[in-house]
Design a binder for these strands. Sequence first.
DNA 1: TTTCATGTAACTTATGATGTTTCATAAATA
DNA 2: TATTTATGAAACATCATAAGTTACATGAAA
Lengths: 148, 148
Amino acid sequence: MRKDSRLSRMLHVLIHMDQLDAPATSEKIAKMLNTNPVVVRRTMAGLRDKGYVTSVKGHGGGWSLAMALSDITLLDIHNAMGDSSVFTIGLSDEHTSCPIEIAVNQAISDVLIEAEALLLERFRDVTLDKLAVGFADYPLNQQTSSGE
Amino acid sequence: MRKDSRLSRMLHVLIHMDQLDAPATSEKIAKMLNTNPVVVRRTMAGLRDKGYVTSVKGHGGGWSLAMALSDITLLDIHNAMGDSSVFTIGLSDEHTSCPIEIAVNQAISDVLIEAEALLLERFRDVTLDKLAVGFADYPLNQQTSSGE
DNA sequence: TTTCATGTAACTTATGATGTTTCATAAATA
DNA sequence: TATTTATGAAACATCATAAGTTACATGAAA
Ligand code: FES
Ligand code: FES
């Protein structure tokens, strides 16, 4: 089942951005993530809409952090990615009036809801500055010829 | 992100099977799930490998429960589906030596592991007979012309 | 006015689950 | 023994959708 690594990638980007004095362009970020500038814009747009980053057009433009890392949590970024459920597990809906299907789905759903609640609670407890401690001077976009 | 409803579907099937006296054919189950007999065989094969169901070829053959519903848990069936992680969230691996990526992935991973542990624990607490109580006489493969 | 950047829409590609076809194998039945 | 009915398994096709790409408009700085 396909994985969504946007959360991981965006956290990584945001923390590196905190160490820069100039805005990071979509192209620069795209190279860092080994992807495409338009994909970066699409994903960063969600963060901008929530106020975590700002974007500036034109010469010298690009993306900048809009607040301190200590004011942003994993949950904030997770939520900004939109995109509903964190689980690959879904419910059947072939016989929505069958009491067995209903009972089965209810049981699964109960567990998913509880597990997701725990996950979100933990995400809320982690601010991004906690992930950056001790690495203040590590370079953004450390490209290696070996492809790292 | 795509959902995997095999767990829900198989639980539904198993509980209905418990109410039958004869084996259920792949074709019958496929109709119930609005899918293809080969898909059913593929999924049921995982359950057979773990000993929860048996399959019999030829005339009068098909699939049967190999043990009581009270001896099977949601976790058992979940595990029999194989297929690793329950989360749509993945980790980045573009810069595996970057301490920030490492710290980010570690933080996410810690949370996922804890949430998954809770989920598996809850799945282990639910035996299938608990989901069937009170519905003993509900018919398998209740086909409706309206498509239900 | 040229260059550099984001914004956005439309389109293409890649991936993986799901579905399908086909044939081999095995068991009951006539 | 021949026929019917079932699973087993491999090979292939389809579908959904996330990711990637192209193209062009917009806006800001030099
Ligand atoms: S990106 Fe964190 S270092 Fe290359
Ligand atoms: S299947 Fe549970 S009833 Fe049609």
